[in-house]
Structure formats: C-alpha cells, structure tokens
Design a protein around this nucleic acid. Structure first.
Length: 825
DNA sequence: GAGCACTGC
C-alpha cells in the first residue's frame, strides 16, 4: 500500500552563513547506503528534495520544500515517475510526517567514521534495493525489448527509438547497453595531424542527454539505485553519475552519465570526438530545443565521418523520442551515411577475456524500434463550437466537471500565462463561494514559473478531504512539472510562444495555437494514474488543423550562440552543416553579421581569438563580449560587470508585486537599491547589498521584494564567471574582499556598449525613443527604473514585443559613447 | 504600466 511521506526542509542555506535549522529526520532514519557524507552544501539538499519527488516504486514520496533553494523549480521529472510500476496513487491517504526514507538528505552531522563493516553494509543494502527495484523494472513495457535492442545495436551504429510516455526508456536503455562488448574502454592509436600516432583509450562510458537539469539528476539517482551502485562522486566505485551546470557528480568509474544537452555541447568543444564515450543516447528529441538540434547535427557528422579522432572506434548513437515523427530523423542520418561512403574498417579488439570484432560501419542502415507506452485511456470531449473567451469557457467546464464527476479526480487547466491564470483563479473562487455546501469543496492552485517556490509547492500536496484540486497552469505543466491526482484536463489550445524576428532583431511573445503533439501531451496528463477525460476548448476541426509538431526552437531564436558554437567546433561551412531543420538564410546571415560585429569572427568568416574565448563562456556571445571589454577597463570594472551580467543571465531578480500596498512597501524598501543611471547599476547595487548581507540573506531578499531564488542563481553564475576569469588570467588569483570601491558607471556602460552598440535608442522630439539602428519606436519597459524618464539615449539588454515594443534592462547612455562604440566596429 | 518554458567548462 503506497504511503505518502511529507517532509519539510526548512530554512535557507546561504553558503553556511548560518547554522542549519532544517527539521531533518533523525539520523536513525537515514539509510545506511546513503549515509556517506559529501557536504556539497546547498545543491545536495536540493537534489534530495527533487529526487524525493520522483516517487520510488513502492512508495510515493512527496516533498514540500519551504526554502527557495532550487533554481529549477519543483519539477517532477517525467521519466523518473514513468518508471513507477504502480502509477496509481491513492487519494486521501493520510500524510505521515516521518516514515522510512530511501533517499535522504546528507545529514549535517559530525563526520561519520565508516568502518569496513559499514562499507559492506552499504553495498549490501544498495544491492538489496536494486533487487527490489528489479521486480518493477521487469514490468516496464521496454523490458521485453532488451535483447532486440542489444542485438540491433551490435549490428548497427545508429538507432532511433520511439518510446511512448511510460515505456521506461530513459532509465532502461543505458542499463541494457552498459555491459555490451562494444561499450568497453578500447585501447587504440590515434593518428595526429602531423602523421604521428598516439595511444589512447577510447570509449567505456554512455552519455544520456536531457533537456532539463532536474531530469538529468533524478534519472541518474534512479538508475544508480536500480544498478545498485552509489551515485556520482559519493564513491570512487560509483558507476552512474551526472553532469549539469553548477553540479557535476561523477567518479573515475562512471559508466553511465546523464547530462544536459548544453553540457554535452560544452564537452564537445574540448573533445570533439567524444573519446570518453562508446555511446550517446539523445533523449527527448521531440522537444526540439536548439541544443538538441546541434547535438544531433554534430553526432551525424561524427558517425558518418572517418572516426579518425576516435582511432576507428565506432560511436553508437541512440536517438529517443516520445512521438513517432521518426521519418525525418531516419532520412537525416541516412543521408549522412550516404554522403561519405567509407570502406568498412574492421577493428579487432582484445578486451580481457573477450575478443570481438568491432566493425565500424557494420551496416549502413539505421535501425528503429517502437515501444508502446503505458497510459490509461483518456476520453476526449471537444467544444461543439469555437470558443471566444477561453477563460470563461474553462470556468464553465470546471464546474461542470465538479458537479457531475465523482471524487477523487483533480482538474488541470492549461492556460497561456500568468494573467489568464490569475483571472480564472479569481473567477473560480468567486463561483465556489456560492456553491451548494453539500458539494465537495474546490481548492484553486495557480502554477506558473514566476510564482514563488513555496506557492508552486502547494500543487504537490494532496487535496484536503472532500476537496477537489483545480490547478491552473501555464505550459510549465506540459513538460516540466507533473501534478499527481489529475484525472481531468482542460486545454485552451493556446500557449505563449517566443519568436525571434530576425529583421527587427526583436523577440516577440505572442499567444499562438499549440501543435497536435502538444495537445496530445496535455491530454496525456489526465491518464497517468487512472482513466481520465480531456476537455478541449476548441472544435475537433480546429484540432485537425493544428500543426503536427512544435516549431523547433532553431526557427524561433537568435542564432548567434548556435553559430558561434559551430564555428568553435570547427564547422566553418555553416551552409553545409546538417541541420535537422535548416533555419532561413536570412537568420543565419544576421547571426554571422552579429558575430562579426562583436569581433568573434574574422573578416573571412573564420573564428577569431575573441570568438574562441566567447564560446567557452556560459553566456550569450554578446554578454561574453561585454565581459571581455570590461576586463580591459581593470579588475574593478570587470568584477562589477560580472555582477551585472550574472543578473542579466537569470530570471528577473525583482519580484512582481500584486497588491497596491505591497507595491508601495517594495518601492520604499528598494529605494536604496535604485540607481538613476538605470537598471544595470541598480542590479549591481542589488548584488553588492545581497552579497554583503552576512546575517540572513533570505530575510534581506524578502524585505526588498527581491527573489531569493533568482539571487542564488546570480551568486552561482557570479562564482562561475569569476572562477573562469581567474583561470584565463583576467582576474588575479585571490578573491576580492567585501570592500567595494565606488563603481564607475561610465566604464561599466561603455563595456556594455561593446556588445550592445546596436541595442540603443535615442530620445526624439515627440518624447518617444527610436532605435539608433533601424529607427524603430521602442518604449521603456514598466519594470525598468528608467520607466517614464527621459534621457538623451538608452542602452537596453532586450527588445521585446508583447502588446507593444519594449526595451528591457535599460540604462542611460550618452550619444557620443554610442557613436564611438558603433564607429569602433 | 507588465512578466510562456527551458538551458551553459
């Protein structure tokens, strides 16, 4: 019988600024196998909270966090919960405060002396746990395909795998493959450019990419448990690890490594042939983020090339998707293999007791595999006629469900944004007060990314007795967050989509119809635990007219970063790069021009020294350029600019205020942070004040209505950038103390102009601003400290179109600075 | 007078 476990992790954890006050469970509850301490401070506690949300198979663990430590939200990664063998979670279970834990916080107690016996127990208990999990693994739909998949990959190098939701692909595929003969480290000789040979061991490890950090971490945890091995850096014997930004946990014996797509791209900059790996598994390709497109393009080049950099050792590639749109991928890889026909190279390998023949290019075909998922049936109800006001329509459906349908069964409503969520929230609450008191109650829970962490957590708690939860969510619930208990989905059929408009150089954020695959994904959220129903607030005809799939991000975003990455990887001929979807020529040209403008490329289009430096920075090329420019203005300026860049590369650090009186309180509290020079210097003063707060940063953030979560990310980025600058000798080795000399606004803003010279506008006589390049009208965004102010010229971080054109992240600059920056090109 | 969702040695 499943049991719900509720744990509260209290207190903030500001880098050990203060003692931990968390009400962690007593040490006696901490399981042996996890007792080894690595006091990696806050991330670890976080990780545990996240992991605990991905319920283990015999227990459903829900964790409510009261702190704000996670930068990535409360996501319950999809696959991890997919691998539960019993998807049904009982409703109305009494929450128990403490019970037996399997995954536990690294307890902040004195170091534990581990004797040999202890260690033995650890491994025994790990094995026991793995044995238990094996029973549920056997029930996964993919499990019976293990031999088939292994056989196919022995014969061929590339496999496309469609695994529907609930098939268990993300956790099982690496385990199916890790003991294959071709997956062993293989000693080989690599021919270098000068013709000399170098001995090197290639392969031995499997990489599995994920679009999101939380998913990478919790999948690694799950697979470590299933394999009966400790996780990551906790033991040198660990076979499973992960690598995401700010948090890498691997060991010398890591064989299975989960990483984010961005992390793999970063690794490829240093090791283009991926010599550590025998296989790369690309998961969730159907989401089609820009990074996955780059990864797949690089991999196609790799598998269809001569493998010289791998000493002839083949690389197996498994591309996994939840939707069946595999024809295009099939054609994509086949074309690559056709293009460069190579005589098959055979390589005989003696590896311990086994000898085998690794045939590179064993076959020039690509294999595919389709695994059915496990979902409960979902009944579809369409709107009989087109809906004009979907908030109003959703309101009616919610109460129709509530009156007619039995309990339990929570409702998940997909809306477009914070505004529609809050409108509907008010309406539902209003109607619910007039409801017949004999009916079950309604609990309305909003869910969107900008919502503070604690409020987001509320959706994970089961509804109180005789109460139906109604979760009003944005797209966040489509991929990132899984809400349990849902049996009814209401889908408005729309979402806000960001689209970069090359010609104007601006991002627009507009409400657009979703794709069929997104509609199917939303519908699926009703059938995870029991049979469900999906109410579409559009007609069947409208549904049939939707696009098949989401527009790949590569067609919707600025390409400068992608192109810089390609150039840094040695792809000089962008035109012939194997794009999964080729962006329009205009977009590519615009990005190349931008790279040229910031000196990342030389006149002939090849990458410059600056470009190489920029590609290694975890920043957009433009922000990276600002950082390099600042380093020429001295250490103080560089440190100041790092603080500002850190703010610009995370979500909004200032909280939005809803009520009027709160707004006034915020204005008062923030007054000492505001700088008349604009948002850049305001961010600097905020980071300085936050970093200088040595007592309670969380309380400080709350007082100033600053997002503590965002500030923690800022501090992470700041730390990373400082470390990188020290490595590249832009900063001295020792840290600066907390003594800050007054910043120089002019030097700082001139540094920004080195990257943002084209993001400038001047005041025109009618009182509006016009962009200096392009002469577009642009208004200062209401969130800016310069909102409503008139200055000679402005520099802005972003140009966004929502209801009108806004400049966001704005500072006042002088026209002659702008002129010099533009002329400097 | 306004804030879809992700992500990086």
């Amino acid at each position: 019988m499943p049991e719900k476990v509720h744990t509260k992790f209290g207190g903030s954890d500001d880098e050990s600024l203060k003692p931990k006050t968390s009400d962690l469970p007593p040490a006696s509850l901490v399981e042996e196998g996890n007792r080894k301490k690595k006091r990696n401070k806050k991330r670890k506690l976080d990780q545990v909270a996240e992991e605990s949300q991905t319920a283990t198979s015999d227990r459903s663990v829900q964790v409510a966090r009261t702190d704000n430590t996670s930068p990535s939200g409360p996501a319950t990664p999809k696959e991890a919960s997919e691998s539960e063998h019993a998807p049904a979670i009982e409703q109305g279970d009494t929450p128990a405060e403490t019970t037996n834990f399997t995954s536990k916080p690294k307890h902040k107690s004195k170091p534990v002396h581990r004797s040999l016996t202890d260690t033995k127990t650890n491994f025994n208990s790990l094995r026991e746990k793995a044995n238990k999990l094996y029973e549920s693994r056997k029930k996964l739909p993919i499990f019976n395909h293990a031999d088939e998949i292994r056989q196919k990959l022995r014969d061929q190098d590339v496999m496309l795998l469609v695994g529907e939701t609930g098939s268990g692909k993300s956790t099982q595929i690496p385990q199916f493959l890790v003991n294959e003969f071709w997956c062993r480290p293989t000693p080989t000789k690599i021919q270098k450019g000068d013709g000399s040979e170098k001995s090197k061991t290639v392969g031995g490890c499997i990489a599995i990419t994920q679009p999101r950090r939380v998913a990478a971490i919790s999948l690694a945890r799950r697979v470590a448990d299933e394999m009966g091995t400790p996780l990551g850096s906790s033991s040198p014997a660990s076979k499973v690890g992960y690598s995401v930004r700010f948090d890498t946990s691997t060991s010398p014996s890591t064989r299975v490594k989960f990483l984010t797509e961005g992390m793999l791209l970063q690794e490829m900059l240093h090791d283009p042939w991926l010599t550590k790996y025998s296989a790369v598994v690309v998961d969730e390709v159907h989401e089609r983020g820009i990074n996955v497109d780059l990864v797949v393009g690089f991999l196609r080049n790799l598998v269809s090339g001569n493998l010289q950099g791998r000493g002839g050792v083949p690389l197996k590639v498994v591309v996994m998707s939840a939707t069946a749109d595999m024809e295009s991928l099939m054609g994509f890889f086949q074309e690559g293999l056709k293009e460069q026909p190579q005589p098959p190279v055979h390589k005989t390998i003696t590896n311990g007791d086994q000898t085998g023949e690794l045939s590179t290019r064993a076959s020039r075909t690509i294999t595919a595999c389709h695994i059915k998922g496990r979902q409960f049936p979902v009944k579809m109800i369409y709107s009989p006629e087109p809906v004009h006001d979907f908030v109003d329509a959703a309101l009616k459906i919610i109460f129709q469900i509530h009156y007619k349908e039995p309990m339990p069964g929570d409702i998940l409503v997909f809306l477009t944004g914070q505004e529609t969520v809050e409108n509907l929230e008010n309406l539902v609450n209003e109607y619910a007060t007039g409801m017949d008191p004999s009916l079950p109650k309604i609990q309305v829970l909003p869910l969107f990314a900008a919502l503070p962490q604690a409020a987001q957590q509320r959706v994970f708690a089961p509804a109180p007795p005789r109460t139906r939860k109604v979760v009003l969510a944005t797209n966040i619930a489509e991929t990132s967050v899984t809400v349990s208990g849902v049996r009814y989905v209401v889908d408005c059929g729309k979402a806000k989509v960001k689209q970069f408009r090359t010609r104007l150089g601006l991002d627009s954020l507009l409400v657009k119809p979703i794709s069929k695959s997104a509609a199917i994904q939303r519908k699926g959220r009703a059938g995870r635990e029991a049979a469900g129903q999906c109410f579409r607030l559009y007609t069947e005809k409208d549904y049939l007219a939707l696009d098949e799939t989401n527009t790949p991000e590569i067609l919707r975003c600025d390409l400068t970063q992608a192109l810089l990455n390609m150039k840094a990887r040695g792809v000089d001929d962008i035109v012939h790069f194997p794009f999964l979807t080729r962006p329009p020529r205009e977009a590519l040209e615009k990005a190349l021009l931008q790279l040229l403008n910031i000196d990342a490329l030389q006149e002939d289009g090849s990458i410059s020294e600056i470009g190489l430096q920029l590609a290694k920075l975890p920043l957009s090329p433009t922000l990276g350029r600002v950082l390099l420019a600042a380093s020429e203005h001295g250490h103080e300026c560089l440190l100041d600019v790092i603080d500002i860049i850190s703010c610009l590369s995370v979500e909004n650090i200032f909280l939005n205020t809803t009520s009027e009186e709160k707004k006034e309180a915020a204005e008062t509290a923030r007054r000492d942070l505001y700088r008349r020079e604009g948002d850049h210097l305001t961010m600097l003063s905020t980071v300085r004040a936050y970093a200088g707060e040595n007592v309670d940063r969380k309380a400080w953030a709350e007082r100033h209505l600053v997002s503590h979560r965002a500030m923690q990310s800022v501090m992470d980025v700041r730390k990373q950038l400082r470390a990188q600058c020290r490595l590249s000798k832009m900063l001295p080795r020792e840290e600066r103390g907390d003594q800050y000399p007054d910043p120089s606004p002019e030097l700082i803003l001139r540094s920004f102009l080195a990257g943002f010279a084209t993001n400038t506008a001047r005041l025109v006589p009618d009182g509006s601003y016009r962009t200096i390049v392009g002469n577009q009208t642009v208004a200062i965004h209401p969130s800016s400290v310069l909102f409503g102010k008139k200055v000679e010229a402005i520099l802005y971080n972003e140009f966004v179109f929502t209801n009108r054109s806004y400049a966001r992240g704005v500072s006042a600059v002088q026209m002659d600075w702008v002129g010099e920056a533009l002329a400097g090109k």
